[in-house]
Design a protein around this nucleic acid. Structure first.
Lengths: 229, 229
DNA sequence: GCATACAAAACTGTCGACAATATTGTACAA
DNA sequence: TTGTACAATATTGTCGACAGTTTTGTATGC
């Protein structure tokens, strides 16, 4: 194992942004990070540069790094891309899925159902994310997986909003069910179709909310996620 | 202007890889680059880290950076993604294209035609690239543009192969013509359709060649591109 | 109170140095 | 000749320092 300082810092900041511990627009000063990690600025700078390439940080010359903001337009853009790519990945996965894998996905969806019933939002988020990432993690196209993972990290903050808009769990679950049905038939085309429907629903819910309440993601995140430490 | 050392090095190495001045698998040692650019290793390392994030370099801990290799499988993967995304970008562009823009694209295609007639491969590459990038540069989805640009850079080496396989220029040109026809009608769906056909053709030609002659890209590049300096 | 000029502090950009790790070269034995 | 241990060399990982730029703070004049 023995991760380098750069790698540890990279992962830490990446997760801090993903889980809304760092707010969009927030500035990251190298010396502050160096102090926090008891390290020098060299590995910090490399980690930050990596995060910039992935879109999580924004860099301005002689000014430094800030946590990237996402405009409504950008959310729209990213969901348009996900709509295409994630549903394509779903097609690939569904075409080669095994019985055990289907059972695993059904189990995940059942946990989503329970979480929705109990209105346990963190639990929903966890199992729903696992459900979605299953399809692009197993599609067999490594480049596609990487792209979707990167996009996923960039919009993950907004997941908190999506689950906080009331009255949609039933729709999400039935759409999941449609995808599962396609899995059982190994019908890739149908899987792609249902995933497109599902992502379109999510996109509509999210953009609808953002247009009505152009809040920061964090105010919502705080209500869903208890922020430890 | 006043680019930083890191930025200059980043662009330089990026272009060196794109235009086959650096071969896949080739190792990049930091001190050698530092000497070459009369700089210290700090900005070099940052530039290399950036290029790694974009897939052009591969990094191994305690071993350093090498120019990324692309397996046939990876080429296949990337073309599958381009097939989806670039044709989608084309739809978006075509739906909002102006008469002047169409004229510009027709001009580009005419130059491609002339280059094909004269078998002027570098000229073909130049104008063909401009033709393709026009559609994703003007689609209005900035995230999509960035993804396609990054993918484009990663497979650019193989463009040399694509044009070197004889007997396909006429097909390429007629497919371009189909895309232009869709532009004139502002028919986004048709534009997407023809771009899909076109990219599929390119993919088939390239993978067909790679499977028959699993050569390095560079042997081909050398024959097309005179490498100055 | 408000704007401006200028000094002080904070921060980024780059550098050279040293420690840790990997690679290469070499001598020696089987 | 081939394989192995070990020294020598090369390369990466990290550090602290300093120059240049931006931001902040302050005093001055209106």
């Amino acid at each position: 194992m023995n991760k380098s300082v750069r790698e540890k810092i990279y992962e830490h900041i990446r997760d801090q942004i993903t889980y809304c511990r760092l707010n969009p627009g927030e500035r990251l000063t190298e010396s502050a990070l160096a102090n926090a990690f008891h390290a020098s600025r060299s590995p910090i700078r490399e980690a930050l540069r990596q995060l910039e390439s992935e879109g999580l940080l924004t860099f301005e010359p002689n000014k430094g790094f800030t946590v990237s903001k996402l405009s409504i337009r950008q959310v729209d853009e990213i969901y348009s891309i996900r709509w295409l790519l994630e549903s394509y990945a779903t097609r690939l996965t569904v075409e080669n899925i095994s019985a055990e894998e289907i059972a695993f996905l059904e189990e995940l969806n059942e946990r989503c159902r329970v979480a929705a019933e109990k209105v346990d939002l963190p639990s929903w988020l966890q199992h729903n994310s696992a459900f979605h990432s299953y399809f692009y993690d197993h599609c067999g196209n490594e480049n596609l997986r990487m792209i979707l993972q990167t996009l996923q990290r960039r919009i993950h903050r907004y997941k908190y909003i999506i689950v906080s808009v009331p009255g949609h769990f039933r729709t999400y679950l039935s759409e999941h069910e449609g995808i599962l049905k396609a899995c059982r038939k190994r019908d890739g085309e149908k899987g792609e179709h249902y995933m497109k429907l599902h992502i379109q629903t999510i996109k509509d819910v999210l953009l609808g909310h953002l247009n009505r309440f152009p809040v920061t993601a964090n105010s919502v995140a705080a209500s869903v996620f208890t922020q430890p430490d």
